[in-house]
């Protein structure tokens, strides 16, 4: 899947890698602190073990941010931090759900079971990432992310109130801005073409219940 082999320009200097560790570490620290705070706002208090785990998580993140732990394999370290954070979040989210009743599973049993197993595996990956060197995390294509995600969200926001025509046109224009080699006139032409195509195909060709124009029309 990751067929794109990073070329020379992607690799970071030691200084940049330190900055990346600081930034990512702080992001995870913040998220961990938010989780910790929310664990105190639950109706029934979260178990002590969960809270302790979150505190340890935050401590590890802070240590990573300030270079106290050797991040030899950034891909594995930050990847497993993400999974651990997700697992801890699942514990907080399923806190109110009852667990085992005798030998019958409660609704909360399976989520906590899977979360625990995932955290254990992620810990193995994390420790491995501190001990053996590995590839760094290649740079995120921020421009692509902002515009593609923006286009999708714009579609979601506009399809109900504004209808298919406006939603399609707007999201094609926004999405096209994600490419580095975007050209304004071409993009407008393509957007018009796609919009006409969609407006004919989905409501008429396939008989799907799409509203074409804005509500006030």
């Amino acid at each position: 899947m990751s067929d794109a082999t990073p070329s020379g320009e992607w690799s970071r200097s030691a200084e940049e890698q330190r900055r990346y560790n600081l930034l990512s570490g702080l992001v995870f620290t913040t998220l961990g602190v938010i989780l910790l705070v929310s664990s105190f706002m639950l109706q029934s208090p979260a178990p002590l073990a969960v809270r302790a785990a979150i505190i340890v998580f935050v401590a590890v993140c802070i240590a990573i941010s300030f270079g106290l732990l050797p991040v030899l394999n950034p891909q594995d370290v930050f990847g497993s931090l993400g999974l651990i954070l997700l697992g801890l979040t699942a514990f907080i989210a399923s806190n109110e759900l009852p667990g085992m009743r005798g030998f019958a599973f409660g609704p909360g049993t399976a989520p906590r079971l899977f979360a625990t197993a995932m955290i254990v595996l992620a810990l193995i990956v994390l420790v491995g990432g501190f001990l053996t060197p590995g590839p760094e995390v290649t740079k995120y294509q921020v421009r692509g992310m902002v515009f593609v995600i923006g286009a999708i969200l714009a579609f979601a926001a506009s399809i109900r109130p504004l209808g298919l025509v406006v939603a399609t046109f707007a999201s094609v224009i926004i999405c096209a801005a994600a490419a580095d080699d975007v050209k304004a006139r071409e993009t407008v032409l393509v957007a018009i073409g796609i919009t006409i195509f969609c407006a004919l195909l989905f409501p008429y060709g396939l008989n799907l219940p799409f509203q074409l124009w804005p509500r006030f029309w």
Binding site: V148, A151, I152, F155, T168, S171, V172, I173, C175, A176, A178, A179, D181, V182, E186, T187, V190, A191, I194, C198
Partner: peptide, 9 residues
């Protein structure tokens, strides 16, 4: 650059 907006939409 023309294909992916179409795919996304």
């Amino acid at each position: 650059r023309h294909l992916f907006p179409m795919i996304v939409v």
